[in-house]
Every structure is written in structure tokens, then in C-alpha cells.
Amino acid sequence: MPLLRHLPLLLLAVFATLPATAGERLTYPLHERGETQRIYAVDLLRLALEKGGGDYDLQPSPLPMTPSRSQYSLEHDDGEVQVIWTMTTHEREERLLPVRIPIYKGLIGWRIPLVRDDTPELLAEVNGREDLQRFSIGQRRDWPDTRILRANGFDVKVSSSYPGLFRMLAAGRFDLLPREAVLVRQEQQRMASEGVSLAVDEHLVLHYPSAFYYFTSRTRPELAETIRRGLEAAIADGSFERLFQQYFSEALRTLRLDQRRVIELDNPLLPPLPLERQELWYRP
């Protein structure tokens, strides 16, 4: 029959329109604010997976997750997430498997304070750690920064809510909120769009040695190795640096880190870092 004679061609046409078989689903935690836009850490992870030779379908978790929840999920290997990125600590490196390449090139340890918009000159006369200890600092309860700042003698007020921190600062519950240099203007602008007016301090930068790593479950060494291999390839061919500059060069130019007074802090949570590899670190 004519239809049967053409059946092989019809089947070939149907299968040609089907999507290729996806690789293993690899889930990372959706930010707790529910943000879905592409961000640097996701783009860098996708680049590493491509260059590392793994066959993965990278997707956010269906629902937003707090940092503590995503770490718990990874530690207990419950299948909700397979990779996270977070600040390294002794505790995290004991419970999870780190990929010891700092994805923000150490910028995560350079912190610029947000202050209330009616006190933009609050820190103009601060010249050292003791001067800064006169002011109260806000942090999220489960961030490592809370322990770091308290270990350096600061009065730290905590919140369990990320967006709540900015509203607490605006309401005068504490004096300043140090944020990552690469994110501080973005966060200020986002809060302004929500009616919360804050100012970026123009005088100081707090610094403590730190690194954000990708982490996997300790049951997934092959995944950690794929990410490590891909990051090393991206460093070698310059694509890591190009992506870093694409995201952060303009912010770093306007923040003028090299012209600010640097308040050096100790980091008691810090495992050994690959400091001998100068190409892994940003320096103002």
C-alpha cells in the first residue's frame, strides 16, 4: 500500500523533530527570592561543564532554597540539588566535596558597606578596625560572615531573611550592611525599585581572605572532577577571565577598590587556599 511504502520516511521525519536525549539532570538551588535570570555562577558552571566533557542538563531547583537548606540537601544527597556554590569553611569542606578554584577570584572577601541613605558619610572618619567596631553590622543568621565579623569584635545583628536585612538597615536596626563588592550596587538598585533607599559607602572596603567554591556531594567525586577539569580548561584558554570581566569589569571600575581605605579582618573559618596560584585571584 502507498502509505506503508512511505512509512520509513514518515518515521524518520518524526524522529528528526524530537529533541536529542538530554544528559543527566544537574540541579542547582534557585535563589530564595525566586530569581531566574542567568547569573555569573550559573554561566561559569555551564562553561565548566561544557569544557569538562560532562553530559549534563543544568537546571535550577523547582522552588527557591535557602543556603542552609541547599547545603543540607547536598550533604545528605537527597536528590534535590547536585551542586551549590558558597563560601568555603572548614566545616563545609569536611561535609561536602569542594572544587578548590575560587569562582569569584577572591572578590567575595571584598565587602563594601551599605548604609542608610540619610547617613552617606557615616564611615568617612573610619581608619581602622577599632573605629569600625563602634558601629553595629547586619548579617544573615546562617552566613559565615556572621561568625567572621563576631570573631573580629563586631556587634552583629542577624536576620533569618535576606530581603529583611535591607529593610532592617533602612529602619535603623543596625548601622551598616557589608555586601560583596560585585553585588552591592545591584542590590542597592533592586531595593530602590522596591521602595527601600540605601546608600553605597564611598570610603571603605572590608577585606578578609575567602573563596566561593562549587561544592558537590561527597558521593559525586566524578562530578566534582568534571567541574574542576572544565574550570582549569577555561582558565587555560582565557574564557574564565573573559566571563569574569564581562560580568564585573564595569562594577569594579566604578567601585574604585584601589582608592578606598582597606579594613583588614581575620577569617577563622578559613581552610587552606590555593594562594600560590596568582591567576586565580583578583587584586585591586
Rank of each mutant, 00 (worst) to 15 (best):
E125C: 00
T119K: 15
V99A: 09
Y104C: 02
F154I: 04
I148F: 03
I148E: 10
P98I: 07
E125K: 13
G106M: 04
I137L: 13
E130C: 05
E121L: 08
A124S: 13
W110S: 05
V115D: 04
R100F: 01
E130R: 14
D145H: 05
Q139A: 12
W143M: 00
G138P: 07
E121F: 02
Y104K: 12
W110C: 02
R150K: 15
I137V: 15
Q133S: 13
N152H: 12
R95H: 14
D131V: 08
E130H: 12
E125M: 03
T146Q: 13
R134K: 15
T119Q: 15
F135Y: 15
E121I: 00
P102N: 11
D155C: 00
R134N: 14
G128H: 12
E125L: 06
T146S: 13
V115M: 04
G109C: 03
W143K: 04
D118V: 05
R129V: 14
L122Q: 13
R147Q: 14
T146G: 06
P144K: 07
I108G: 08
V126N: 07
R150Y: 02
G106C: 07
L122W: 10
R100K: 15
G128T: 10
E130W: 08
V99I: 15
L96C: 05
D118F: 03
S136Y: 09
A124G: 01
E94H: 13
I101C: 09
R147A: 14
N127Q: 14
R134Y: 10
Y104F: 15
L107N: 11
L114K: 02
R95C: 00
G153W: 01
L97H: 11
L107P: 10
G109D: 09
E93Y: 06
L123H: 06
A151N: 10
R134E: 15
R95D: 12
I101H: 11
Q133T: 11
E125V: 00
I108N: 10
L114T: 01
R111P: 05
K105Y: 06
R129P: 11
R95W: 00
W143Q: 04
G128E: 12
I112F: 00
D155M: 08
I108P: 01
D155Q: 13
L114F: 00
